[in-house]
Design a protein around this nucleic acid. Sequence first.
DNA 1: TAGATTGTTAATCGATTAACAATC
DNA 2: TAGATTGTTAATCGATTAACAATC
Lengths: 252, 252
Amino acid sequence: MATGRTERPAHRGRGIPEATVARLPLYLRALSALSERGVPTVSSEELAAAAGVNSAKLRKDLSYLGSYGTRGVGYDVEYLVYQISRELGLTQDWPVAIIGIGNLGHALANYGGFASRGFRVAALLDADRAVAGQRIAGMVVRHMDDLEQIVRDDHVSIGVITTPAPAAQGVCDRLVAAGITSILNFAPTVLSVPEGVDVRKVDLSIELQILAFHEQRKSAVDPAAPDLPAAAQPAASPAGGPAGDLPEVMPA
Amino acid sequence: MATGRTERPAHRGRGIPEATVARLPLYLRALSALSERGVPTVSSEELAAAAGVNSAKLRKDLSYLGSYGTRGVGYDVEYLVYQISRELGLTQDWPVAIIGIGNLGHALANYGGFASRGFRVAALLDADRAVAGQRIAGMVVRHMDDLEQIVRDDHVSIGVITTPAPAAQGVCDRLVAAGITSILNFAPTVLSVPEGVDVRKVDLSIELQILAFHEQRKSAVDPAAPDLPAAAQPAASPAGGPAGDLPEVMPA
DNA sequence: TAGATTGTTAATCGATTAACAATC
DNA sequence: TAGATTGTTAATCGATTAACAATC
């Protein structure tokens, strides 16, 4: 681990593991709740329980940020909230544009969680001229034609794609061309982006499928059993079987 | 790896790594697209590209299911669709209940992707008597009072929680008591569940925070720099700093 | 047979965890 | 000082990847 590292203490600044970054928001949420209750300090054991992880992992995660705890005492809640917020970049403003104002885009526009923690819905866009012009969550939906201009004028830094799957790549390309380098994709498609552009993906259908996998295992009477003979390989695709019944995963 | 393993070939059946399970839906989606285009066979290289992974990983993932390819040729698209569907448990019906019909619940009820691949929205529930009774996506919203009965009568196997955060744990407890062992949680809270119950979590706010972290790094002029002196530790929580400004992440 | 492509091996990498010395 | 709790080490575990023998 950490072979060609530079002179810096611990890992500070660069080199926080992805798995740790993904958990920092959980810690932050738990800490915010403690902060609201006026709790001044918290131990790794307590905070870990609140965040749903084990305490060794929590301490290791926090150690990547620095030594912000006090042995024998714990962590100062307010101080840790600030440090994690700063590390995540939440002490600055992040204007977000939502593209595709269908059911999901509509829901996100009204989503309270967006407005918190530095994120601000700066623009709503849709390709349908009947949707553009409508007032949603206190904002007027703009037409896709204005995308580049809106990104520029409003300094949009994160694009949220909630279009139907077939439209997603085109929207993505335009966002990237307009200079956006962070995209949250709700459309069930793999997006191609150039080096340096981050895409994160939220996929309801995939989450359900993972649950189904485990659910199936639970109720399975015999964990071995159900299989086709190895002989019946590629040649015969299961005669009229379930394969054909599965429709395309589609719009959001 | 695999120390006390039993007599079965490769990993077949049990023991598919979590990381692999999480990718199977991606492969399935790519394969379905190929199937619709009438493509008969696909190489690991092509399929991997379509799913956005590298081909070594794809082949390793598929090898956990069995030897369903043909050397020198590739994989039969229809056959692989069937095998993955079966492995994921998508050849059976999964009745889903959505609890909490706010903006997000509403969007999910109308979400096309739900209906595909064996998932079927069996019931919509809400705690608000003004919402119960409304007709959404062709269904009448039921009141929470009927939850246990609905789960029983409609054989609901997966619960989707789209309530505000404070209500989520209570709903979760009732679902578990009613016999549900698979839950998809959209509320920004950690849910406590007994052993044997699977919870997966979709958290928009967390995804945004992860993007913000990386976005911040990109624009950072000096990757070292911004920090407080180590001396100003727990004692002083950053005077009136951003910490207090961060409101609670809230309802969905 | 020659070319293509799978399935598997083995090396590497990253993440998790228990344990405990350091220290408040 | 005694008790509590952090920060870090080191062992373990799981996931990724390149490479290639097997084989169609």
